[in-house]
Amino acid sequence: MATTRNAAGPCAGSAKAPSPLNEAPGARGRARGLRGSEYPLHVVSLVLFFAIWQWAGSRIPEAGAALATPTQVMASLADLYRTQFAGLTLPGHIWASAVRVLAGFAIAVALGIPAGLGMAYSPVFRALFNPIFCLLKPMPPLAWISVAILWMGIGEAPKIFIIVLGSLIPVILNSYNGLLLIDEEMYDVVRMLGGNRWDRIRLVSAPAALPSIGAGLQIAISVAWGSVVAAEMVSSRSGLGFIIMQGMKISDPGMIISGMVVIALLAFLSSLLVEALLRRVCVWQHDIGNL
């Protein structure tokens, strides 16, 4: 008879990693037709997408002002790369955003994993922190920007603060759930083999919670990129969010879309990087994308 443990986490509900679509486990070739390749369709789809975009951007006069064509975006990107904008070229802005993301992400991980594990491990700790966590959870990180600037000035600190707040939540939630959802019989194995409390943590808790924590990190890094853009859009003199915001101010859709493209690429790449790292560490997990 299995125990149904109260898995209702901090405010219940676990964060699920928005997994890449090609990772649906066990689906390969099952639910109707992977007969024939989808690649030709992909090509058709992409060609159509860019063709329509180009056509709309260049032929519809009203759209032209608000919808740069793909070629204009390319030109804009090249321009940002070559000439300085607000004192920095594109790599400089990328670096500015990346440093913020990395700093915020690192702090969120350093705080979030112990907090989540602590909440799962100790009911007292959970009782103490859950109410505050529940209040902070639905608060969009950007809502903090005003007080953050008041408290910390207009330097790097408030931006990093916003990123920490945003990415902290998936880290906490997934660490919490990762530890809580471990089958208790796993611990019985170690107990039967003469293990003490430390052996249980070392041999079961740590490895068993790892995939879930990793999935949390993957969500967190995406959230971090979103947060940095938001923070930079509100107050900054550098970074990709700044480029997007300036594009809006000078009514240059090419610049806006350039910023969006770069952000999307970076978010995508860092998520891939985290996933690759996870695959490395959690060799036993064959469907990491879907935790």
Partner: peptide, 8 residues
């Protein structure tokens, strides 16, 4: 239910 550790 065997209870093997999948990571080992």
């Amino acid at each position: 239910s065997y209870m093997l550790f999948p990571w080992l």
